[in-house]
Design a protein around this nucleic acid. Sequence first.
DNA 1: TATTGTTATACTCTATAACTATA
DNA 2: TATAGTTATAGAGTATAACAATA
Lengths: 179, 179
Amino acid sequence: MTDESARASRPNGVAFLLAQTGAHAAGLFAERISALGVTPGDVGLLRMVAAAPGRSQRSLAEELGVVASRVVVLVDGLERRGLLQRRRDPANRRNHALHLTAAGAEVMAGVRALRPAHEDEICAGLDEAQRHQLAELLGIIAGRQGLAPGVHPGYRAAPQRSSRDEGERDQGSPQLPRP
Amino acid sequence: MTDESARASRPNGVAFLLAQTGAHAAGLFAERISALGVTPGDVGLLRMVAAAPGRSQRSLAEELGVVASRVVVLVDGLERRGLLQRRRDPANRRNHALHLTAAGAEVMAGVRALRPAHEDEICAGLDEAQRHQLAELLGIIAGRQGLAPGVHPGYRAAPQRSSRDEGERDQGSPQLPRP
DNA sequence: TATTGTTATACTCTATAACTATA
DNA sequence: TATAGTTATAGAGTATAACAATA
C-alpha cells in the first residue's frame, strides 16, 4: 500500500493550485473586510446595488443564482445595519428599489481602500512583470470560462447531498447545479 | 451617484481573479467527482488516509482544522458507503486506525482519472508554455503563503457571524480564524 | 391570473458540551 | 486524571412552499 499512498499524496497542476490559492485569497479578503463588519457576500450584494441603484430584489436573486427568500434575509441584515435601504418603487409598487445609504457607500469605500494591501499580500514574491503576466493568464481563463468581470461565486448553495442517497456511486447524471 | 456606481462596478487585480477562477475550478471539480458519489471534502479525507494508512481521527481533525466530532460524521459517511474502514488499534485501543477499502481505493483511482480532463477544461485557451508559466507563478504564491502541497481549505467553518453583533462595524480585532 | 416580496417551515452543516472507553 | 471517540444538542444557513400585496 506504499504504492497507493505515494500516488495519492499530491494532486497537482494548475486547476488544483488555482482552487487552493483562490480559496486562500478569498479567506484573507474575508478576514480583512470583517474589520468593516461585512462578509464577502455583503460586499458583493452592496456592489451590485451600487452599480445599479434602484434595482429589485428579484433581479439580484437571479444574478446571484439564489432564491428570492434568500435575498430577503441578506437585505434584511444590510438594512438592519443601515447600509442599504428599501424604497417602494412608485412605478410598480410591488418592487422594492434598493439603494445604498451613506453608511453603505462608506463601507464600500473602506473595502476599496483595503484592496491594494490585499493585492500586495497575495502577490508577495512576484515582481511587477510577473503580476502582469499572472493577471493576463487568469484573465484568459476567466474569459474562456465565461466568468463575468467583478462577479464571483460564493452565493450558490453547497453541493448539498442528502443523507439518504447512500451507496449509489455510479449513476449517470452528475446533477449539475447550474449548466 | 453615477460616479459611485462607476467606481464600485469592478474589483479587479490578481487577488480577485484568483478567488474567482479558483472558486470556478473548485466548482467544476466538485461536479465531476459527484459522478463518483463523493464531495471534495470526501476526497481530501480519503487522500489523507491513503497517504498515511492507519492514522487516527484525532490527527485528521487537527490537520483539517476541524473539531473531532466533525470527523466522526465525515468518517461515518465514508464508512457507510464502504470507502473507509475503522479498525481498533491494538497498541492503543482508544484509537481508530483508518484504512481505505478496495472500493475507496477505486474511487481515488477514479478521481485521478478525472484530473487530466479537468485540467484541460480549466486551461482551455492556454498553450503549453502558458500553462507552465501559470503553474510556476501559482506555485510561488502557494509557497509564499505557506500552503502545503496537496492540501486545500474548504473544511474550515464559514466566517460565521452571529445575528446579534449588529451595527458594530468598527472594532479593532478582525478575529482571525487561525493565524 | 401573474409577479414581487415575505413568512413559515424543514433540512443540512457544524460546533459545543456531556458522555463512554480506554490509558 | 488525561485522551480518543461518540452522542446530544443547538445555532446558522439555505431552500421550498404557502401567503399577501400589487399589477
